[in-house]
Computed example of a mutant assay.
Amino acid sequence: MPAVLVHGVPDTHRLWDPVRSHLARTDIVALDLPGFGTPLPSGFASTKEEYLDWLIKQVEQIGEPVDLVGHDWGCLLTGRLASIRPDLVRTWTGISGPIDPEYPWHYLAKIWQTPGEGEQWMKDLDLEEFAAKLVEAQMPRDAADESVRHLDATMRASILALYRSAIEVGAEWKPGLSSMTAPALVTWGLDDPFLPHRFADELGNATRARAVVKLRSSLDSRLITCVCVTWAQTHAAATRTAMIGHPLCAQAFVRKRNHGEAARRALPGLHQTGARLHDKFSKHPDRRRHRRRQC
C-alpha cells in the first residue's frame, strides 16, 4: 500500500523531496497537481471539483487503498477524497489545511478570489519579494526559493481559478468529513500566520482523528512527513519514536483524541509524550487554551 503525498499552493511535488531520503519506506508517490509544475489537461479549468476528480483518478489507478497525506490545499483535497471514496484510503493525514466554514480566508486568498485584483497581483508579482514573504511566514528559505521558481503563468492562472471556486469550500466539504472511515491524523504549525491552529482541533473533531499533532512550524516538512508516513505504516504506534530527538519537539504538542480503550491501544505513548512536552510548550501565548483542551 503506497503513500500518496499531495502538495498545496504554491508548490509542486518537490515540496516532499527533502524528506524522502529520511523515510524507511520506498513506496512513495508524490503527485503534481495539474498546472503546478505540469501542463493542464485539455479543457481543465482548475476548479476544486476538477482537482478532486483528477486526484480520485490518480489514486484509483494505484489499484489498492493508499496512505494519503496532504499539505495545505492537498489537505483539503485529500480530506474530501477520504470522505467520499473511503474505499481508496487506508489512512489519511491532513497537514495545515482548514476545512471549516468558520475559517477566515487569509489576505492573499481574498485578493486571488477577487476578479481583476487577483490578475493584477499576479501580473505585478516579484518572485524574489514573494519568496521573502514566504520565509517571513515560516517557510524555510530553500523551500521558498524552490516554490517561486515554478510559479509560472500556468500556475498563477490555476491558483486564481482554484481559489475562486472554493470561497465556500468549508461549508460545502466539512459536513462530509464525518463520513471518513480511515484512521486520521492531523498535524499543524503553531507559528503559521495564515492558519490559526484552533482549526487543527476542529479538523481533528470532524474527522475523529486519532491524534492532533501541533508543532512550531507546519512547514518543517522533514519532521511532519516522516511522522505522517511512519504513522500511516503503523497506525500511529511509531509516532512517538519519529518525534523524539527532533529540535522542534521542544515546542510540540501532541493531543490524543479521547476514543476510549481502542484509541489507547492504537496510540501507545502519545499521551505520555504530550504530557512530557506540555511543560516546555506552556510558554506559548495560547497555553491556556491548549491546557483546557488537552485530552
Rank of each mutant, 00 (worst) to 15 (best):
M1L: 13
M1I: 08
P2K: 11
A3Y: 02
L5W: 06
V6M: 05
P10G: 10
T12P: 06
H13A: 15
H13F: 12
P18E: 15
L23K: 03
A24H: 14
A24F: 11
I28C: 08
G35H: 11
G37Q: 13
P41S: 14
F44E: 12
F44S: 11
S46P: 10
L52C: 09
L52M: 07
D53T: 13
L55C: 08
L55R: 08
I56C: 09
K57D: 15
E60P: 06
V66Q: 04
L68E: 04
G70T: 06
G70Y: 01
W73P: 00
G74P: 09
C75S: 14
L76G: 02
T78I: 04
L81T: 09
A82W: 03
A82F: 03
R85T: 07
P86V: 05
L88H: 11
L88R: 12
R90V: 04
T91W: 00
T91R: 03
T93K: 03
S96F: 00
I99C: 06
P101H: 11
T114E: 07
T114N: 06
G116E: 05
E117F: 08
K123Q: 14
D124F: 12
L127S: 10
E129R: 15
A131M: 08
K133F: 06
K133V: 02
L134S: 12
V135Q: 12
V135L: 10
E136C: 05
D145W: 11
V148K: 10
R149L: 13
H150M: 14
L151C: 13
D152Y: 13
D152L: 13
M155A: 13
S158Q: 08
A161S: 15
Y163F: 14
R164V: 04
S165V: 06
A166G: 12
I167N: 04
E168T: 11
E168F: 08
G170N: 03
A171V: 07
W173L: 14
P175S: 11
S178E: 13
S178T: 15
S178N: 10
S179L: 09
M180F: 03
T181F: 05
P183V: 01
W188C: 01
D192C: 01
F194Q: 09
P196I: 07
H197D: 04
R198L: 07
D201N: 07
N205M: 08
A206R: 05
R208K: 14
V212E: 01
V213A: 03
V213T: 04
R216L: 07
S217P: 05
S217L: 05
L219S: 09
L223D: 01
C226R: 01
C228R: 01
W231R: 01
A232H: 04
T234A: 10
H235K: 09
T239H: 00
G245H: 06
H246P: 03
A250Y: 02
A250T: 04
Q251W: 03
A252D: 02
R257L: 00
N258Q: 12
H259V: 11
R265Q: 14
L267H: 04
L267C: 15
H271M: 07
Q272P: 02
T273I: 10
G274L: 02
R276S: 06
R276V: 03
R276C: 01
R276L: 08
L277C: 05
F281M: 08
F281K: 00
F281S: 00
P285V: 01
P285G: 04
D286M: 06
R287G: 01
R288Q: 12
R291M: 08
R291D: 09
